[in-house]
């Protein structure tokens, strides 16, 4: 197992770990990755990955219009809104 770059991983996850907690998470992650490393010894050369255990859930329905996710409903939990939009700081200069 190579070293874990906790800064990179946390940025990928869009988390800004406080510096005093970086080591805590880094060590914890190392322990857990070491713990799950035993999977590497399993021979899976002839095994397909499993995504959905029941593997038989294709359902077809009629394409009918229904009313859901109306603008006011969707925006009702927004921390900030402006008219019919979510409001965030300016993104383009």
């Amino acid at each position: 197992m190579s070293d874990i770059d906790i800064k990179r991983i946390s940025y990928l996850a869009k988390l800004k770990l406080p510096s005093e907690k970086e080591e805590f998470y880094s060590n914890s992650l190392k322990d857990i990755i070491k713990w799950v490393d035993n999977l590497k010894k399993v021979d899976t050369s002839k095994t397909e990955p499993l995504h959905n255990v029941t593997e038989k859930t294709v359902s077809i329905r009629n394409d009918e219009v229904s009313k859901s996710n109306c603008v006011d409903d969707v925006l009702s939990n927004a921390p900030e809104r402006a008219q019919n939009f979510f409001k965030v700081p300016k993104v383009v200069e």
């Binding site: 991983i9 996850a13 992650l29 990755i33 799950v36 999977l39 590497k40 899976t44 397909e48 990955p49």
Partner: peptide
Amino acid sequence: ILIGAYVLSAGYYDAYYRQAQKV
């Protein structure tokens, strides 16, 4: 979230995530 981001990240996906799906 950190474990997940790690096992899905480039270079580790096959060794961890895909292998776990096979197991």
